[in-house]
């Protein structure tokens, strides 16, 4: 058996919950002098372990506050877990909130290269895929306009086109399949489907069980920072749906 694409081992994430957020020096000095820097611990993730094999598509389900977003951020490498390790092999394309790396004053064309570089790709590499990105985003006429003048749908389309054009091996998707209008949505779903066929590993976070059933072959269910169920996507989705009804 080959090594898994994603391996999460005993990951826990603890936050300090300050009763009042101290974000300036004056407050901080006053608090320290009075010995009043108080906080309570909050474990957003507790001892999470799982593996995702290459080409597997894992759905992550859970209610608000269950720790889905935190888990995704830990896996994407944005947050460092308090304890435990995350190992990923291959190029990761985070689709968390598309267009996060855009500079509003920059044109669409310039942003393509900036966004690519943010994901660690060279100018030459992006240049090869440049035409494809523009064609897929359907933004040819607007590509030299600054992104601040784009609509949110246009921005998301551009972000989606870049993130999927670089042929990532691991795709982290946070409910972005609702990008743009119905036409673009159908197109992006097709694109994602073709990436599935190519054997990309997917981590898909959603509340939408029909979508998870359609896209994923396995799922885990998070509740209060713990995995309470994992297995075939259909079974976990059924469990989630019954929990929703309760």
């Amino acid at each position: 058996m080959t090594e898994p694409a994603i391996r999460v081992e005993n990951v826990s994430m603890m936050f300090h919950m300050h009763s009042e957020k101290i974000d300036n020096l004056k407050e901080y000095v006053i608090r320290v002098l009075r010995h009043k820097v108080k906080y309570t611990e909050f474990w957003a993730l507790q001892d999470i372990s799982f593996e995702v094999a290459r080409g597997e598509r894992l759905g992550v389900l859970g209610f608000n506050g269950a720790g889905k977003s935190t888990l995704l951020k830990v896996i994407a490498g944005v947050m460092k877990p308090t304890t435990g390790v995350v190992e990923i092999s291959g190029v990761v394309a985070p689709l968390l909130e598309l267009g996060a790396g855009f500079d509003m004053n920059y044109s669409g064309r310039e942003n393509i290269f900036l966004y690519g570089a943010t994901m660690g790709f060279s100018r030459a590499y992006i240049k090869e895929r440049y035409e494809e990105i523009i064609a897929f985003s359907e933004l040819k006429d607007f590509i030299d306009a600054p992104v601040k003048n784009y609509s949110s749908g246009m921005r998301a389309r551009l972000g989606f086109s870049i993130a999927t054009a670089v042929e990532p091996e691991v795709l982290i998707v946070d409910e972005v399949l609702s990008v743009g209008d119905a036409k673009f949505r159908a197109k992006s779903e097709k694109k994602i489907q073709s990436m599935f066929d190519r054997g990309v590993t997917v981590l898909f976070v959603s509340h939408n069980t029909p979508q998870v059933r359609k896209l994923c072959n396995r799922a885990i269910l998070l509740d209060h920072g713990k995995i309470i169920a994992q297995g075939a996507a259909d079974e976990v989705c059924n469990l989630y749906d019954t929990m929703v009804k309760k």
């Binding site: 994407a76 944005v78 790396g101």
Partner: peptide, 9 residues
């Protein structure tokens, strides 16, 4: 912040 919150760089 918007980049650092989403992408590992």
């Amino acid at each position: 912040a918007s980049v650092l919150k989403k992408v590992r760089v």
